[in-house]
Amino acid sequence: MAQARGKVTIDTEECKGCGVCVDACPPKCLELLPGLNPYGVHPARYTGMNCSGCGICFYVCPEPGAITVYRLIAPKVAQPPMEGSHAATL
């Protein structure tokens, strides 16, 4: 399996458990928790696999801050230091 390109964190206190994100997620990497949160709903969570970092779950979620989407920063390819590169920081 290819490495996940992104990840999602979900605030279980803000999530109302509507499940729209679970349905909308293209790689199907979200699920509703079997347990209840303090407000009596099954909040959504990231399964930990396959997130592409597309951000769709964020847009379909009705809560302003329940979902945060991250994308993996491509590992930097080690490059030989260029001459005068420090000048760019000026």
């Binding site: 992104g6 990840k7 951000g55 809560e63 801050g65 991250y70 994308r71 993996l72 920063i73």
Partner: peptide, 26 residues
């Protein structure tokens, strides 16, 4: 290393002072 690409907009208040409780939800 991850970068945040989608998160709560700064246009929203941090807390919603509509009621004493549930200030983090609409």
């Amino acid at each position: 290393e991850y970068q945040v690409i989608e998160s709560k907009s700064p246009v929203f208040y941090d807390k919603y002072e509509r009621k004493a409780e549930l200030q983090h939800q609409t």
